[in-house]
Design a protein around this nucleic acid. Structure first.
Ligand code: ZN
Length: 229
DNA sequence: CGGTTTTGACCAGCGC
DNA sequence: GCGCTGGTCAAAACCG
């Protein structure tokens, strides 16, 4: 266990390093373009999750004055990813975003890089510490995994029935870039390790079929007004 | 003009 | 079976 933890730590540190490098590259590139007058258009600008979302519904919660919005990924035809966003009633600054399913198409480069690395980390973890008896994630070991990484800025917990990851970024620091990269990473990791055979449900309406689900609870620092996110 | 948001209708589950 | 409720459709409005 200790050995695995050490290994995991190294992997995570590596992830962090990769992310830092990528972010630096992005910043440099954007600055260069700004210098050259080639400002990145709003449309193709970086989106919160790295994907384009189309809103397809909104419902008012019964006892809450905060509506719930439903989005669908429009980056590729037939991308089964859905997303629903809900604001907390009392604390308007808290958003709860729920992603369901995994993308059908490649993600943007930074997210992809992070995703692959994170996936590798999760893979190592699974093969190493998991007794592989139940085949599913055995409790909170993903939590422990990403704990040193987050160290108070995010907590990850998983539930058994089907891949469900809950990120609580309520008190995250100013680096919300990190969140943007972390989210698709976790998504891809769960997709890679808990590859559920999509079970061709004939257009079921309810009962969010067997997909990996990711809940993200975060404060809306400046993230909320993201138009398509 | 194309794509997205808005917004009421609609429809399937589910509890009673 | 009935009505409530949450999720989705689709047409119109909206916007760059
Ligand atoms: Zn997608």
């Amino acid at each position: 266990m200790n050995e695995e933890n050490r290994l995991l730590r190294e992997v995570l540190i590596r992830v962090a390093a990769d992310y830092n490098a990528l972010e630096m590259q992005i910043v440099q590139l954007s600055q260069q373009r700004r210098r050259h007058g080639h400002e990145i258009p709003r449309k193709t600008r970086w989106i919160s999750d790295g994907c384009q979302w189309r809103k397809y519904g909104q419902k008012m919660a019964k006892g809450n004055p905060c509506p719930r919005a439903y989005y669908r990924c429009t980056m590729a035809g037939g991308c089964p990813v859905r997303k629903q966003v809900q604001r907390c009633a009392e604390d308007r600054s808290i958003l709860t975003t729920t992603y369901e399913g995994n993308h059908n198409h490649p993600l943007p480069p930074p997210a992809m890089a992070m995703a692959s690395t994170t996936s590798a980390a999760a893979s190592i973890l699974l093969s190493g510490s998991m007794p592989s008896g139940d085949g599913l994630m055995g409790g909170n070991f993903l939590t422990r995994t990403l704990m040193p990484f987050s160290s108070g800025m995010a907590s990850i917990s998983a539930s058994s029935p089907f891949p469900t990851v809950t990120l609580d970024l309520t008190h995250a620091p100013s680096s919300n870039h990190f969140q943007r990269a972390l989210l698709p990473s976790v998504a891809a990791a769960t997709a890679a390790n808990f590859n559920v055979p999509l079970q061709a449900l004939p257009r079921r309406r309810k009962s969010s079929g067997r997909h990996s689900t990711i809940k993200q609870i975060c404060r809306s620092t400046s993230l909320l007004p993201s138009t398509t996110g």
